[in-house]
């Protein structure tokens, strides 16, 4: 008696080899097995009630076929599209799709790494709060200036130059600095990673009120609060009197 071919069909899923990872959602379906040949992957063992499953239908780039005899037919087609290659090595999905670690570990924090602090040019506008200028320029202005313009300012000598901190600033030319937390940064520059400003400040400053003075090259100097004194004619006169001539070291 001849075999009724219409009863002898089995359902398959076909997907390109490049899309093998899309089979992940059905990897745990134990009744399935898979085989690969010619850049294609076939999954067999599908039951007819699996065909309506949204998980199966949700697999992108996958096509459902049925096998009758040796020929593969599209799901709703009557004309075969290809022949099933013979001698395939059918394996369970859990074997055919081995597990591995993802290439990027989201839980890796790199605690042991170190970071060089660098300053980069910035276009964010900020008002200047400090100015670095030659001591002599400051002296000639400040000893004759009105106390009103000086008493809210503080200053410190850095080598041959004086750093005057406070606003309103003096009407004197010099390199200006802006403030980010306890940092005095050159105008036009900011940290490469501004989010670290608070942490850097906490590591560098010994007590509240200390400031960190930065150069464009990324070097810095911690200014203790007690070293930055109120600006007044008397303070200038006494400081200039004890400044060594030709002092260039910071």
């Amino acid at each position: 008696m001849a075999t009724n071919l219409s009863n002898d069909i089995s359902w398959l899923l076909e997907i390109d080899e490049s899309g093998v990872d899309f089979l992940g959602p059905i990897r745990h379906w134990q009744h399935l097995s898979m085989a690969a040949a010619g850049g294609m992957i076939w999954v067999r063992g599908l039951r007819s009630d699996d065909l309506g499953n949204s998980v199966l239908r949700g697999i992108p780039h996958a096509r459902v076929l049925y096998l009758r005899g040796d020929h593969l037919y599209p799901e709703n087609g009557l004309v075969p599209t290809k022949k099933m290659p013979p001698g395939l090595n059918w394996r369970p999905l859990s074997k055919g799709l081995p597990l591995g670690f993802p290439s990027f570990n989201h839980n890796y924090f790199g605690i042991g790494e170190r970071l060089a602090v660098r300053l980069v040019a910035s276009t964010v506008e900020a008002s200047a709060v400090a100015v670095l200028l030659p001591v002599e320029t400051l002296r000639s202005y400040a000893i004759a200036a009105s106390a009103v313009r000086l008493r809210h300012l503080r200053w410190v000598v850095l080598g041959r130059e004086a750093l005057v901190i406070g606003t309103p600033m003096l009407p004197l030319p010099g390199r200006s600095f802006w403030q980010l937390g306890e940092h005095l940064l050159p105008a036009g520059y900011t940290f490469e990673f501004p989010i670290l400003a608070e942490t850097i400040g906490r590591r560098l400053c010994r007590q509240a009120g200390d400031r960190v003075f930065w150069s464009e090259d990324g070097s810095c100097l911690v200014l203790a609060h007690a070293d930055v004194v109120p600006l007044s004619p008397g303070s200038i006169r006494m400081t200039v009197a004890i400044l060594p001539a030709g002092n260039t070291t910071l």
Binding site: A144, A145, S146, A147, S232, P233, R237
Partner: peptide, 13 residues
């Protein structure tokens, strides 16, 4: 006189 000397340090000019 001493007080004046101290204070005149703070005087302008």
């Amino acid at each position: 006189k001493q007080e004046y000397a101290n204070e005149s340090l703070e005087y302008p000019g």
